[in-house]
Amino acid sequence: MPSEPAPSTNESTFLLSALRENIRLDGRALDAYRPISLTFGSEYGTADVRLGKTRVLAKIACEVTTPYPDRKFDGIFTINTELSPLGSPAFEVGRQDTTELLLSRVLEKTIRRSGALDTESLCIVAGQKCFHLKATLHVLDHDGNLVDASCLALVAALLHFRRQDIEVKGEDVTIFDVREREPIRLTIQHRPFCVSFSYYHNGEVMVQDATLLEEQCRQGEVVVSMNRFGEVAQIAKYGGAPVDGLSVLSCTTAALERVKGFDRMVTEALKADEARRDEGGLMAELSAENERPTGSMLVGSEN
């Protein structure tokens, strides 16, 4: 199947006439998001984002390679997007379509080009060894707004990830196992998030977090990526119906509010995850006492 089946005329006219009265089919306000859940996996660097029915999993992996000859002092950071038939029957394995192209370009511009990750900190020995950080995004369920969900998952996963510690003595490099030394966090310069706006009726109605049906009926979209300090990492409006210059600017103001919320949510989720991992706190770690079998087990062994 090359593309999603287009919604029927009835469905799309109903949706559009409802939107004209500022009503969305699922009862949300025009600028409301579906319920977001952000969970981290047991391994470092896995984040699972659910946005209504949309679900995206981000996974970070790290390995040692040689750096590019023209970028000797930088590590390598690549982002892969995997749109498999698992997410939607319209996605085919090994065939690149526009959804994937635009998704990967937006993430590339938002996170890589804006310098969110300090790639110089991934360098081990200049020109010889560096870390290659691979971020992979798996779209597990597609119900619209892949861009926002993917960007959120990716930033959260980068913040959650820890790489192995290294020690460089002259030419000798030691990479410590996770059990030998506490793995260390990545250097994240800022946290950009994407907010996409779909518009209808020649830009009169702007909607945040569109579902798949809403995406299929829209006239165009504006994707704004920014961090909570109001720095815009990228804006993309690829054609579609022309809108006022002012309404594009109002998108950036709305995006700033939204991004602050995302930032807070990620910080809280990371803190909760840390608390969960650090059971018993420092005292439990420092204690030399071994766990003793409990009384009931002793009774059992006597028999």
Partner: peptide
């Protein structure tokens, strides 16, 4: 003043 295409790829203050 109707914007059809708007592409920005570099970081800038809002």
């Amino acid at each position: 003043d109707k914007v059809n295409v708007l592409i920005m790829e570099t970081r800038v203050q809002v």
